[in-house]
Design a protein around this nucleic acid. Structure first.
Lengths: 150, 150
DNA sequence: GTATAAAGTTTAGTCCACTTAACTAAAAAG
DNA sequence: CTTTTTAGTTAAGTGGACTAAACTTTATAC
């Protein structure tokens, strides 16, 4: 049996439904325009937010074998989206990072996501904008704290 | 050149980055546990939020050929996730809708998404919760208005 | 130093989504 | 009533992601 959600939960859920639906669709559309596949694009996103990393981290994060990670990376290197180099301190390990081309691609996608958010809020009053900003700061903080505590 | 984002934009963007990252990952993980592929799961989501629809709507929404839509639907029927029936008013057309099994699957996934949201806010004070609820209601309204005006 | 473990690659083969093209059947148009 | 359009399916074939298994190279353990 579910307990009835609080008014805040309800608001959070309603917002999430709208937000998820819309942003997943536009994300999907953008990836398609790039000509990359979803797994390829996801790796670029990972590199954008978390910086350079080794192959093993990729296979862990995306829950695929080392072979799969290696093959995906190879395609991204071929396409010029990432650069692959040997780790000087451990010559078995490679690390990959975004190339300028890959970086531009991801940044353009993120900007497109931001645009929608800005559009949404463009019709709010200054007072409303302040309230929204405050609330989202609270949520972001709370989310980060939760993440850290795990 | 980008103009510097307002404090509200900044808060919105920070929230979006954290939120998208986390919820996309957990969504991905959940889909994997179901044994379904992403396109299959997306169709179930569509049916959950928008209700029954015809094949042509599926191929439009997901931007694939009618053949692809038909094949995906066939697999979901085989798996028992959806039911397919003839439209009585136009016997060429079929419509598909979630079966109880499919419906349960999607609802469980959504509940899992909600759980994280509730966790996040569990450490806020009552006053903060109130502010968050109000702000999110504003955003949800604004998003819907924007959608309608297009 | 030799054995073992670890990081990554290559190969062969599977599964799935997807497309094009040919098809069936029903509705709409003339 | 015949023609054309519409809704959907089927079949054949392509390309990508994925895995398991065999392999190379470097680091670590004993």
């Amino acid at each position: 049996m579910m307990t009835k959600p609080s008014p805040m939960s309800h608001a959070l859920r309603a917002w999430m439904d709208v937000f998820m639906h819309r942003s997943m669709r536009s994300w999907h559309v953008y990836v398609k325009t790039t000509g990359l596949t979803m797994p390829q694009f996801s790796i670029l996103m990972q590199l954008h937010y978390k910086g350079a990393c080794g192959m093993s981290e990729i296979s862990e994060k995306f829950d695929v074998t080392a072979a799969a990670a290696s093959q995906l990376a190879e395609k991204l290197v071929q396409g010029g989206y990432i650069e692959r180099a040997e780790d000087p301190s451990d010559r078995r390990a490679k690390f990959i990072q975004l190339s300028p081309k890959g970086s531009d691609l991801i940044e353009a996608g993120i900007k497109e996501r931001y645009r929608w958010m800005d559009e949404i809020t463009s019709n709010l009053t200054a007072e409303e904008k302040g309230r929204v900003a405050g609330a989202l700061r609270l949520l972001t903080e709370a989310a980060k704290n939760l993440e850290d505590s795990k």
